[in-house]
Nucleic acid binder design. Structure first.
Lengths: 233, 233
DNA sequence: CGTGACGTTGACTATTCTCAACTTTCGTGG
DNA sequence: CCACGAAAGTTGAGAATAGTCAACGTCACG
C-alpha cells in the first residue's frame, strides 16, 4: 500500500494542479488504483468506461485487437505521460507493459467529476486528450502517406523526443520495445523493419548495439529519410 | 448577420446543454463566428489556437499538408458534428468544404473558459475530443492493417453510419467527396480506389450511379470485405 | 452540345509481404 | 563465469499488393 501512496504523491506533485482542494484530492485518491506490471503484463479495462493512466515508471503499449490475429499498436506510453484508455467498444483495447511498469489508473468519469467548482482537472484531462488526438492524427498521416523508411526514421525521432534516452550518450536511445512491436505500431512486418534498420545502418545514419540500443550518427540524413524537407527549403 | 443568429441558435438548441446561463451563452456568442463556404472554400486557422467547428449544413474535410505535395485527409465532418481543429503546429491543417457548407467556428479556449461555475461545456468539449480520438485511432488501425478492399468497404460503412444518406432508398448513399478525396483519406491512390469500386461492383456488392451515388446490394458480403468476422464466429 | 474535370482501365514497376533458413542475443542454470 | 537454449533478429528469394504512367471514357456544367 506504500507503493500506492508514493505513486499517488508523485502523480499529485507532477500532474495535478497545485491548488486543488484536499477534498478533491481525497476523492481522486479513492477512485484511482495503482498497478505494478511486469514485462508483458496487461490490463483489460473490460467495463465500457474510459480511463486515464499516469505512467510513473517503465513503458506501455496500447493495442487494439482486431477480428483476425493481427493487432495494431495505437499508442506507446512513457513515464510522466497521462494516457487516455478507451473503454470496451468496437475494438478491444489492452494496455500491455513493455517492461516492468508502475502506473496509476483513474476512471475518466471520476477525473471529470472531481472538479466541482474548480474545473482545472477537467482542463487537464482535455489537454491530455487533445495531445493524444494530435499524436494519433500524426500517426494516421504517417501510416497513410509514408514509406517504410520514412516511418522508421520518424519513429526514431519520436522515440528520441519522448525521452527513451539512454544515459551512455546524448545521441543514444534505448528502445523498450521489440522489432515486432515497432512493426505493429508502424503498420509494417518484422522483416521490413529489420531490413530498414540494416539499410539505415549501412547508410551510416545509425548504429545499433544489442537488441535495443540505437545511436543516431547522422541527424540530417535521418531527418531527410523521415521525409522532412531540408531546412533550406 | 441573420445567418449568424440562425446558425448560433441551431448550435444552441442541438449541442449546448440546456441549463447554461444567459451570460455564458452570450460570451460564447461573442467569440464564435459563422462561415459560409462554397465548394472547395477553405479556412486556415493560422493562429496556434485550437478551434471547434460545428457543422450545420454540407460537409468538410480536415486535411494535413505535408512537406511534399501529398496531403492526407485526417477527418471528414458532417452536419450535426462538432469537430476539433488543431491550431498551426507541426503540420499545417486546413478545413476545406466538399460542397456548400455552413459552419460555426469557436475558439477552443473560449469554449473551455465559458464554464465558470458550470463545467458542462467543458465536458461537452472533452466528450467530442474523445470521440474524435476514437475515430482517429480507428483510422490508424485501418491504415495500419487493412488492405485496399477492406479500407474502401469500411469507408462505405462509415459513411453510411455517419448519415451521408440519399433519400432515394435506405440503402443508397450520396458521397460528397471525389475519388481523389476518398483516396487521400484512405492512404491510397485514385486508381486503386477506382479499381476497388469496379471490383466490388463486379462482385455484386454495390451498384453505382453517376459519380457519387452508391447503393449497397450485399451487406453481408460488404461486411466480409471490410474484414469483419462473420457473425457466427 | 461542347468542354474540362473526373473517373476508369490497362500495362508495367516498385515496394512490401510471405515463407524459410540462418544468426545473434540474453537470461538461466550449471 | 561459461555454456546452453529459446526467443528475437537478420537475410534471401519469390509472390502479392498497390503505385505509376498513360490512354480512353463519362459526367455535369455552362
Amino acid at each position: 500500500m506504500n507503493d500506492f501512496i508514493d505513486l499517488f504523491d508523485e502523480f499529485d506533485r507532477r500532474i495535478l494542479p497545485h491548488h486543488l482542494t484536499d477534498a478533491d484530492i481525497l476523492r481522486l485518491r479513492h477512485q484511482a488504483f495503482a498497478l505494478h506490471l511486469r514485462a508483458q503484463g496487461h490490463v483489460d479495462f473490460g467495463n465500457p468506461e474510459d480511463h486515464f493512466a499516469y505512467i510513473a515508471k517503465g513503458s506501455v503499449k496500447l493495442v487494439a485487437y482486431l477480428s483476425s490475429s493481427r493487432e495494431q499498436i495505437v499508442a506507446f506510453g512513457f513515464p510522466g505521460e497521462l494516457m487516455h484508455i478507451p473503454g470496451a467498444g468496437r475494438n478491444g483495447f489492452s494496455l500491455i507493459a513493455l517492461e516492468a511498469t508502475e502506473l496509476l489508473a483513474i476512471p475518466a468519469a471520476s477525473l471529470l467529476a472531481a472538479s466541482g467548482k474548480d474545473s482545472t482537472l477537467l482542463r487537464l484531462a482535455i489537454e491530455q486528450t487533445i495531445l493524444a488526438l494530435g499524436r494519433s492524427r500524426a500517426n494516421s498521416i504517417m501510416l497513410g502517406t509514408h514509406s517504410a523508411r520514412e516511418r522508421l526514421a520518424g519513429f526514431l525521432f519520436a522515440m528520441f523526443e519522448r525521452g527513451a534516452r539512454h544515459r551512455a550518450s546524448p545521441e543514444t536511445i534505448r528502445l523498450p520495445m521489440s522489432r515486432a512491436e515497432i512493426a505493429d505500431s508502424l503498420g509494417l512486418t518484422i522483416e521490413t523493419v529489420s531490413r530498414q534498420f540494416s539499410e539505415m545502418r549501412n547508410l551510416g545514419l545509425i548504429e545499433t548495439s544489442g537488441r535495443s540500443i540505437v545511436t543516431i550518427r547522422d541527424w540530417e540524413g535521418l531527418a531527410l529519410a523521415a521525409g522532412q524537407m531540408p531546412a533550406a527549403a
